[in-house]
Nucleic acid binder design. Structure first.
Lengths: 92, 92
DNA sequence: GGCGTCCAATACCGTTTGGATCTCGCGTTC
DNA sequence: GAACGCGAGATCCAAACGGTATTGGACGCC
């Protein structure tokens, strides 16, 4: 599992579409698609329900989403804190 | 920044030696060395003070260590929770 | 029912990243 | 000053990642 995978996962969860998420992340759709799949493989569970209209979070996906967001936020905070920009939790 | 980098960082911090940490992680010493360096580059701060006797945590390193541990733990928990091993925080 | 659209998944390829091995440089120790 | 312990650099190779092109399935429209 990698941070990018988590990042991609959150993006797809938020957008509901792999393609949409890819656009937002500024990378190609297949890259996102593949990383999501690997993440699911590693976790041994489907994170999304594939519909012909896009991707819908599965139950496991919903659980993971909260954790994923927390992780990304922690990483941000850690980086900021070390860089000296501790203060508040400004995400940019 | 990647999860492996964080993992390596924690290992080095705990061991006080790059070589020692590498052995524990079952990878070669230069690999760890490089990842630590990249992490430092990315954060723009030295995480360790290099001594002829090993590596000592710098102030920034000490700060980051707490965060790093928390992040790794979060990732573990997230994975466990999704896999169905939600219960307590059993790490295995 | 055939066609165009919209979606994700797959195949293939070039590039990048990560690890292994070998080597060097610097201190310490005797 | 020779030997040891330690981290860092250089080089090579394999695995991972991302991009382009393409396929396959479901839906809407004519």
């Amino acid at each position: 599992m990698s941070l990018s995978q988590i990042e991609y996962f959150v993006a797809v969860a938020e957008q509901g579409h792999v393609g949409r998420a890819a656009a937002k992340l500024c990378i190609a759709q297949p890259a996102v698609s593949r990383q999501i799949r690997r993440l699911e493989d590693e976790l041994g569970k489907s994170l999304f329900v594939r519909t012909p209209r896009g991707m819908k979070l599965s139950e496991a996906g919903a659980i993971f989403l909260r954790r994923a967001r927390a992780i990304l936020e922690s990483v941000q905070e850690a980086a900021n804190e070390v860089r000296g920009t501790a203060r508040c939790t400004r995400t940019s």
